[in-house]
Design a protein around this nucleic acid. Sequence first.
DNA 1: AATGGTGTTCGACATTGCCGAAAGGTTCGC
DNA 2: GCGAACCTTTCGGCAATGTCGAACACCATT
Lengths: 282, 282
Amino acid sequence: MIQSVDRAVRILAVLGSGPPRLGVTEIADRVGLAKPTVHGLLRTLEHHDLVAQDPDTGKYSLGPGVVSLGNSFLGGSELRARSLRWTEVLASKAGEAVWVATLSGPRVIVLHHVFRPDDTVQILEVGATIPWHACALGHAIVAHLPAPEQARALASDLVRLTGRTRTTKAALRRALAQVRRQGLAVEDQEATVGDAGIAAPIFGRDSVAGAVGVVGAADRLLIPAAGQPDLDRPDAVRPDTAGPDVARPDLARAVQEAARAISRDLGAGRGSPLGPVLSALS
Amino acid sequence: MIQSVDRAVRILAVLGSGPPRLGVTEIADRVGLAKPTVHGLLRTLEHHDLVAQDPDTGKYSLGPGVVSLGNSFLGGSELRARSLRWTEVLASKAGEAVWVATLSGPRVIVLHHVFRPDDTVQILEVGATIPWHACALGHAIVAHLPAPEQARALASDLVRLTGRTRTTKAALRRALAQVRRQGLAVEDQEATVGDAGIAAPIFGRDSVAGAVGVVGAADRLLIPAAGQPDLDRPDAVRPDTAGPDVARPDLARAVQEAARAISRDLGAGRGSPLGPVLSALS
DNA sequence: AATGGTGTTCGACATTGCCGAAAGGTTCGC
DNA sequence: GCGAACCTTTCGGCAATGTCGAACACCATT
């Protein structure tokens, strides 16, 4: 581990997580380094436009360079590229906004966002990060992670975002087991009040690569647990195996189909170790 | 300038600009360093999720961490925050897509993108970078830069993107002079065939902070130079002072109004050195 | 005018990261 | 199937490199 690079990155992280503008002294405190050390690192980062210094106050913030890099990452992401055509279909079939996400540490990052087909004003969420335990995308991914990584995810900070966020290991373990059973994750207002999510895992050649799902108003995406199952669609989620939150069967099916289509494009299946898992999901 | 950090950033830049996946050897060649050196830097960056290594091929690519940083930058950008409300208005008034951009080195970065109000499928361009000399946003910014920085911009690589891109210093200097006269930049298919742009500068407390403009099909945004001026709107751009590309007067006016509104929100004016410049633009 | 707080510069110490060479591992071609 | 060529990764010694204490210049308050 190269020390100065490590420190530089930690400075970037501090600038990205805290208040938008910080002074040298404040940064030095937060990363635990001497002031001149931080200054030198900042100058180097500034030279590459990764940080910018406010000419008036002398304080530092992230620079435009980081957006370019972020954009390059999105452009080079195979998961994102492969999901473009299928998410379009899913959005129009479901009539809801579609997100594609991948895991980064204890959070999921939205890689792609297809707007809900109606033309209301919507803000773009690409690049946004959400704690994995508070969204369906995160559940779908973590449920299919190898055991050690899954344990690491469960050991992370399980912050409460709304009154309904599940924050205990036990509750999350139950949720993940259910996700594995159904091949589908459902979340009801655990990240944002009023919004729900339905998601399914996407597999790469030999591991889970991300997840795709729909996001929108809970009363459009879910049906009350007490409601009758839609017996015309036997392959849809059945209320008797589901928890209190039940996904609309047509949405559940559409999400799963999209996830499988993207997985196929990514090269999962054909003799890969995940073949059996994939079959179980179909 | 701290060497190892500088090298690490150059590695990130290489990963962001070249092919999406590169091996250690290839990276070492491109940055001109020894293989083990690059390896150490990559391991450090990987530890922070700024690069990711493909477990199969061993090749490296940018990691999810860079998107988080990019998103933090956008969230903390005052220019972006202040422009949100006005761009919404501009988009609906103009009926076209609206971009807000800032300068980063020789390129402009799109900080905010409001979709064209009709609901056709559009891709999101936030984070995209464009050579400054090939777009109206870039002209609007560079035209109001202090002389030394302006010279530096003119000294950069003036790449030809389409058959109409102006690539000589002389032509660009003329264009910039006209932008200063009119307080408006117009670009006709210099970045993308079929697309034009109309943009105006946004000023911060004591310098140009960015630009706002509309982007769309050239035949919707521009009127033929030979056409008659719209005499009902005396404050619009007049063909006799304009070059061959003439912006639709209503769009020109709307863009300028949005730019001035955002500048006002950013704190330009009220006794700042740019007061006179601002007045001249109104 | 004095004070507390910035961001910044300087210089010496020794820690740190650099690179040559060699070692696993994998994918070709034969 | 075998060998060779490529890859990524590891090791160790040299010295260049980055780190930090102290002092500087500057601004906003007191």
